[in-house]
Design a protein around this nucleic acid. Structure first.
Lengths: 185, 185
DNA sequence: ACCGGGTGCGACAAAACGCCGCACCACGCC
DNA sequence: GGCGTGGTGCGGCGTTTTGTCGCACCCGGT
């Protein structure tokens, strides 16, 4: 894992150890050289050393915010591909992130495939037109609900009780929702 | 309205006549010179003529999509401030829009004040750090549901039956939800 | 006048929710 | 080892919300 030849290098910055290592493993399985960091300043140092093609950074980070890292990295190398992750898909933060130099912005839970797809899409400057003539593409209420639950849940590290409190419903209800939906939308 | 002296010029591109004229009036009241267009290609021509500082364009537009307009305008004058509006706040489209040159992206319903605020914020290159240490700012499930309903409903021009269909629930249920929540969340 | 489509509302069974309690497990602490 | 704390899974039960009818009404078009 020390040979840098032929391998693309990815740097994952996230304070969630489980998520970070899972993501790293996924990238390794796909032939990447991976580096992980839970800490912002450490990540900056690491980036210096390993010269990654791709950096994945969580918005919410202890110490310096993920946005600071994006800014710093982007200042150093504007061509660097930085993908931002976050628990809540907020448009405002997404815009800020891209303004600071992030190439893309994804909501957790995002798996390696999604990230890689985003990466590839960025590499080729083709802009896929998103829902333009939609109306039919309206997300169902259930879908919106489900996605929001997933976001909050991920943000609580899977803590159902806490997530339920934040979502404003009963723990039991959240449990039931979770045990019902999983199959699919 | 022909004198370009001292007045800032804004161009509003939206096929919703009511919304467009409302927005125009609001801007006029605030001392702007306003131009409106419901059509994409007409908007491009108008932009050529009036040389606006600010362009507000809806994502969903007949003929060419709002994104095309953003791209075209941005190509002509990269420094132009373009603010994108849309019914659904989708992160993906927001990113695409900014990549194409939009300066900001707002969800409808957005009033002139919000837009102006966004404009001012863009003018000054200060980047306001958005919710960084949130956790407390988690929108409740009910809130998310309500907002989504409002968006879809607005998109259906208030047609409850159609909105209910799109949302994946019964007309009766939507009615009940609407008659319950209205006060405020 | 007639019909299609949208709205408001009453009614009733079915499903979901709020809420309680209990058993169980993993920690951290004395 | 004991013990308290906090999270989870689950059963049950009363209440609330949905789904699904049906019906009366209004409006715009042929």
């Amino acid at each position: 894992m020390t040979e840098t030849v032929g391998k693309s290098v990815v740097l994952v910055v996230d304070d969630d150890d489980a998520f970070r290592s899972r993501l790293c493993r996924a990238f390794r399985d796909r032939g990447w050289e991976t580096h992980g960091s839970a800490d912002g300043s450490a990540a900056l140092r690491l980036a210096e050393e390993c010269g990654p093609e791709l950096v994945i950074v969580d918005l919410r980070l202890p110490g310096m915010g993920g946005l600071d890292i994006v800014k710093e990295l982007s200042d150093r190398d504007p061509s660097l591909c930085i993908i931002m992750l976050t628990g809540y898909g907020s448009i405002a933060t997404a815009l800020t992130a891209t303004k600071l130099g992030a190439a893309h912005y994804l909501s957790k839970p995002a798996d390696a495939d999604q990230i890689l797809e985003a990466y590839r899409r960025i590499s080729s400057p083709v802009v896929a037109a998103p829902a333009a003539g939609d109306t039919a593409t309206v997300p169902s209420l259930a879908r919106v609900e489900w996605e929001h639950i997933q976001r909050v849940l991920a943000d609580c590290d899977g803590n159902i009780s806490q997530a339920a409190k934040l979502l404003g419903l009963h723990r039991r209800s959240l449990q039931r929702k979770l045990s019902k939906y999983p199959p699919r939308v």
